[in-house]
Design a protein around this nucleic acid. Structure first.
Lengths: 221, 221
DNA sequence: TAGCTAACGTACTAGTTCGTACATTAGTGA
DNA sequence: TCACTAATGTACGAACTAGTACGTTAGCTA
C-alpha cells in the first residue's frame, strides 16, 4: 500500500454516540448469538465495528452488561411487535389461530433472538435477573390471549381449562423448538423443520393443534 | 497438615481405564451442561476427577472430542429408554398418551441432557455431524409412533395428517421448552414450568393437546 | 476563539486456558 | 522375574482474552 490514506479526513473520526452504541449492539447480538456468551469475543465484536473495544467498555461497562443490553433490546422488539397485535376483532377461534401464526412468524424471522434465549437459559437467566428493565415487562400478548380465552369460554367454544400463560407456553414451545433445535433434529431425523417448503405445513399444524386442544370435548370431571 | 499421607499406597495410583474414562465423561457432562461448550473448562473437569487433565487428552484427544463423546453417551441413554417402550398393547389413544407422558418424564429426569442439546444447537450440531456413531442412530420411538399412528388411522380414531417425525417434534417441543426455557420463562412471566406441584397439570395438558390434535374433526379438504 | 468535556483511539497487562513434552509406574505375559 | 506397554502424573508454555491506563480530538458553548 502506498501513501494514499483517507481522502479528506486524516483520521475519519466522526462523533456519533447513538450510532456507535447501536452499532456495538448490532454486532454484539450477532456475535453472542453465534458463539454463546462465553464463546463470544469482545475483541471480535470490536473488530467488526467501526469503533474500538474501548468504546464497548465506555458504553456498557463489560461483557456481562453488554449481553444484558443485547437481551434488553431483543426483548423490546417482541414487545413492540406484540403491541401491534390486532386480532380481537376476530372470533375467538380465528383470533387464537392468528395469534399462533404471528408467534410462529416472529420466531422464524428472528433466529438470533431464539439463540439468545437459549444462551440465557444455559446461564439460568442471570442477566434477565440482573436487568431492572427486563424484570417488569409483562407480555402484551398475554393480555390479548387472556381476553380471547375469556371470550371463547363464555361463548362455549373453548372447553379447555388453561390460562393465558400456559397457552402462551404451548404456542411458544412449538415455535421455539422448531427454530432452536433445528440442527440437532435435522441431524438425527433427517428433517429440516425450517425448510421453506414445509413452512405452511408446520404453521397449519400449530394452529390445528392449539385449536383442537382448546375446543376438544372433554370428559366431565 | 502433618505427615499423615495415604494409608497403604504411597501414591494411591490404581489403574482402571474403564473407570477413569467413565468418570471423566460423568464430570464432563456436568461441566458442559453447566457452562456450555466454550464456557466449560478442561482444567475444571480434570480437577473434579480422580485423575488428571492429561488423561482427558489421552482418552478423548481434546475438548471437542470430549464433548462429542458426552453427547454420544447422552443420546445412547434415550435410545435405551426408548427401546424399552411398551405401549403397543394399548389402544392407539392410550398408547400415544402414554408415550407422550414417558417423553415428558424423560425430559424432566434429564435436564443436563436438555442443556447439552441446547448447547449443541448453538453450535449448529457440528459435533453430531462429526460423530460417526450419532449420525445413524434413528430413534426407536419413531418406529413405535409410526405403528400407533397407522393403527389409529386405520380404526378411524386419528384424523390428523401427520407422520411420526412431526408428531415426535410436537411432543418433544412441549417437553423440551418446559425444561430448557424454564429460567427465562420464569423470570419473564413469573411461572415456574417445572414446579413440582404443577407437574401433573402440564403432563395432562401435553396428553390432552396431542390427543385433541390427533382426533379432532377436520374440515373435509 | 478559547476552553471544556463527551467521545474516541492505542498500547499494554494480568490472568487464564488449551494443549503437550517428558517422566513414571502398575500390571501382564513370556 | 523380567521386560514391555497401557495407563498415569508433573510441569510447563504459547496463545488468547477481558479489561485498563493513558493520551487525543471533535464539536459545543461561553
Amino acid at each position: 500500500m502506498t501513501s494514499v490514506e483517507e481522502p479528506a479526513r486524516p483520521n475519519g473520526r466522526i462523533r456519533d454516540a447513538a450510532r456507535t452504541r447501536a452499532e456495538i449492539l448490532d454486532v454484539a447480538t450477532q456475535e453472542f448469538a453465534r458463539a454463546g456468551f462465553t464463546g463470544a469475543r469482545v475483541d471480535e465484536i470490536a473488530a467488526r465495528t467501526r469503533t474500538t473495544k474501548r468504546m464497548i467498555y465506555y458504553y456498557f461497562g463489560g461483557k456481562e452488561q453488554l449481553f444484558t443490553a443485547v437481551l434488553e433490546r431483543a426483548y423490546s422488539v417482541i414487545r413492540e411487535t406484540e403491541q401491534q397485535l390486532d386480532v380481537e376483532h376476530l372470533d375467538p377461534v380465528a383470533a387464537i389461530r392468528r395469534l399462533a401464526e404471528l408467534t410462529f412468524d416472529h420466531h422464524e424471522a428472528h433466529p438470533d433472538f431464539i439463540r439468545l434465549v437459549s444462551i440465557e437459559n444455559i446461564h439460568e437467566a442471570e442477566h434477565i435477573a440482573a436487568s431492572a428493565e427486563l424484570g417488569k415487562i409483562g407480555s402484551p400478548a398475554l393480555d390479548v390471549i387472556g381476553r380471547i380465552l375469556a371470550s371463547g369460554r363464555e361463548s362455549g367454544l373453548f372447553t379447555a381449562d388453561v390460562d393465558a400463560v400456559d397457552l402462551h407456553a404451548m404456542i411458544s414451545s412449538f415455535c421455539f423448538f422448531r427454530v432452536a433445535n433445528r440442527h440437532t433434529f435435522g441431524a438425527l431425523f433427517g428433517r429440516d423443520l425450517v425448510a421453506a417448503d414445509q413452512r405452511e405445513h408446520y404453521r397449519t399444524m400449530l394452529g390445528d393443534m392449539v385449536i383442537a386442544y382448546l375446543t376438544a370435548e372433554r370428559a366431565a370431571d
